[in-house]
Design a protein around this nucleic acid. Structure first.
Lengths: 156, 156
DNA sequence: GCGAGGGGATTGACGTGTCAATCCCCTAAC
DNA sequence: GTTAGGGGATTGACACGTCAATCCCCTCGC
């Protein structure tokens, strides 16, 4: 550990592991995204929004809460909601309780799209990720992801 | 294993691990990319191109070889080279040996930018990724990444 | 020789994400 | 009351990646 702190550059081997790690995660994301798209015409961005909304009380969230929940910048959410609204998946309306603030509401079409996409997507996650790993490996993923998150201060 | 095959959906716990995994990798990528950008005004896409070129013989590669090496679609590479050329990082010229085919050449500015970005970038990788993990955890990452890659048929 | 086909590369249209600027409406200072 | 400021949200300009269409020039069959 002390020795590790003294080094500046990663070794060749560490670098290879890093590259494999990040590239594999990327590939996995892309594959899942492609399947989701062809199964339900939803991007993974759509999916995150729909997921958050469908778990929300009255299928509605304040725009800022939604951004907070899924960890997006305001402007990204705003752009994306605009596109989703155009496709009829969500609807925006001024929030009655608060003069600032916009309520984002799941439409029937949005709820239905999410339902339709959800099961195959979960199946895909099992197939491409969970099934690739033994239970021990899965536990290792959890462990080291936790270590990374703590290192990066992503944990509560 | 037999039991696993029979299930359709991942458990709640498996899903949590999946989400943490993919989200952490994504965050890490974004962080690294931001640092690279502010340290050297290079995107990680720029970096990959410059890395491949600077390791190449005569700092030059055929466009198609380059695409192959870094695993990009032709059109993505073409667009990106256009932008990089505009910034003076690379230069394109018809390939003398082959009537089809374009030679992509690292410019002096490109080589210098890469040099300048490289060390801090490697330091960042060590700091944000390698230092977060014990040697055992790093070995585990390698192991399960390998398992994933084999499952997805990404291995040679 | 000439037309079909094919590999190499580019282009255009489009959806997406980021950053910075802006807008809107409220609250608080004076 | 008028204005400074601040939180919530949108907008515009731009960089990026993807897909499908296209272009270019060669090779091969005839």
């Amino acid at each position: 550990m002390a020795q590790k702190k003294r080094r500046t550059m990663p070794t060749r081997e560490e670098l290879r592991i890093w590259r494999d790690y990040i590239e594999t995660a990327e590939t996995l994301r892309t594959l899942l995204e492609g399947r989701l798209q062809s199964e339900s015409s939803l991007s993974s961005a759509d999916y995150r929004v729909l997921l958050a909304l469908s778990e929300a009380d009255r299928k509605t969230l304040r725009s800022s809460e939604l951004a907070q929940l899924i960890g997006w910048q305001r402007s990204r959410l705003s752009h994306h909601l605009g596109r989703m609204e155009k496709r009829g998946l969500v609807r925006r309306a001024p929030c009655p309780d608060d003069v600032h603030g916009i309520d984002v509401r799941l439409t029937d079409l949005g709820a239905e799209s999410f339902q339709r996409g959800s099961r195959p997507h979960l199946r895909d996650v099992r197939e491409l990720f969970v099934d690739a790993l033994t239970p021990e490996q899965l536990a290792q993923v959890d462990e080291f992801t936790g270590a990374l998150r703590r290192h990066l201060d992503l944990e509560p």
